[in-house]
Design a protein around this nucleic acid. Sequence first.
DNA 1: CCTCGATCACCAGGATGCGCATGGGGGCGA
DNA 2: TCGCCCCCATGCGCATCCTGGTGATCGAGG
Lengths: 225, 225
Amino acid sequence: MRILVIEDDEAAAGYLAKGLGESGYVVDRAATGPDGLAMAVTESYDLIIADRMLPGIDGLLVVEALRKKGDNTPVLFLSALGQVDERVRGLKAGGDDYLVKPYAFAELLARVEALIRRKSGRAEETVLKVADLEMDLLARRVTRAGTEIPLQPREFRLLEYLMRHAGQVVTRTMLLEHVWDYHFDPQTNVIDVHVSRLRQKIDKTFTSPLLHTVRGAGYCLRAPE
Amino acid sequence: MRILVIEDDEAAAGYLAKGLGESGYVVDRAATGPDGLAMAVTESYDLIIADRMLPGIDGLLVVEALRKKGDNTPVLFLSALGQVDERVRGLKAGGDDYLVKPYAFAELLARVEALIRRKSGRAEETVLKVADLEMDLLARRVTRAGTEIPLQPREFRLLEYLMRHAGQVVTRTMLLEHVWDYHFDPQTNVIDVHVSRLRQKIDKTFTSPLLHTVRGAGYCLRAPE
DNA sequence: CCTCGATCACCAGGATGCGCATGGGGGCGA
DNA sequence: TCGCCCCCATGCGCATCCTGGTGATCGAGG
């Protein structure tokens, strides 16, 4: 999988190249709009990541030129908060996406993978759902009955794992393996604490609890009958 | 379990249908790619077996079209093309497995079962059943005649062991070994107590008892005649 | 048929251990 | 440096499990 990064800021470009490289992508870099456009048309990329603000040119123009040539490579825009206008928003429908700086790298990676998968015709599961509890993996948002619930990163991972195994009992060992990446018993009550906190957020203010403890076994996220 | 076979060769398709039918699957057949695609989208199958070489169309295209519609039914490709890159192309296009002709039917059956198991939530051997009593090992839920029965951890282990040995007489020593992990005689009536409790829960409110005591030998969980 | 011994079922009290909540400290990024 | 998030430790409450005792049931032999 090849990715073209068009970004004038050396540090930002390096950061991207390093992170994406570690995730198994081959990354080419261009520092200016014209350079990027030239590389995009001569080489074949699976994805282009472009800054909005490039020396002397708007990143949007690069993409417009590309599209005129019949190139449909998906583009992910990076832009500062003030630069997000309607034109950029609209691109989302056309197979492209945008991300506001500053961003968490994990989120960028999620979107990159989503775009590449979408392009290659794969259906993407981006929203998990259990009863009235919903999790948007791309936006990293969780809502219950329509109201948003802010979660910490670890809480998010925990809930994601529980939702992916909804209806099943999830043991502590499973959680340690997949949420904490521990492959041993930490001999503490880390899990209890986070489950407790998560419960406060997703169950406390609602009538029917979704997160049940199965004594002697683990936990189970289940929709009420 | 329903399987769709997309295969133009009449003999090969018949061979598949016969073999799979004997293994308990319901098999539908399509002779061309378009036919197969139409059947796949209108009906719901647990697995699709597709030939790579179809009249006028590559089986790959059928799968790609299916995936674009958001259909994730697992697909097993059959092909005379044994090259590695062909295999990779098949898997990339959204196929889930690849089998090269000629093949042993036992191998095909093994792969079919693996794919179906994978799709159905990795639920392999998770439900034990004796008469109208059911135990879901993943969800840790027990139901009799549809109504849920809450069990304590030890009661759960006890019932699980009994259900795994349904119809056999289970001695006290066996229970101590496998349910309590005792390798000696505790000289108490722990077992009696728990069997009693379990009986209350699974037999008390029902007409025909399932858990019988075999005097001088042990216990036996058995469905009524 | 009756008696007696052995086995089994059930009940209730008590101790253990599990799970939950809260507050404080340490590490990491801003 | 500051703030945030994560982890750890303590104490509490309660469910769960075991223990001992008593009554019921079964089987065999007189």
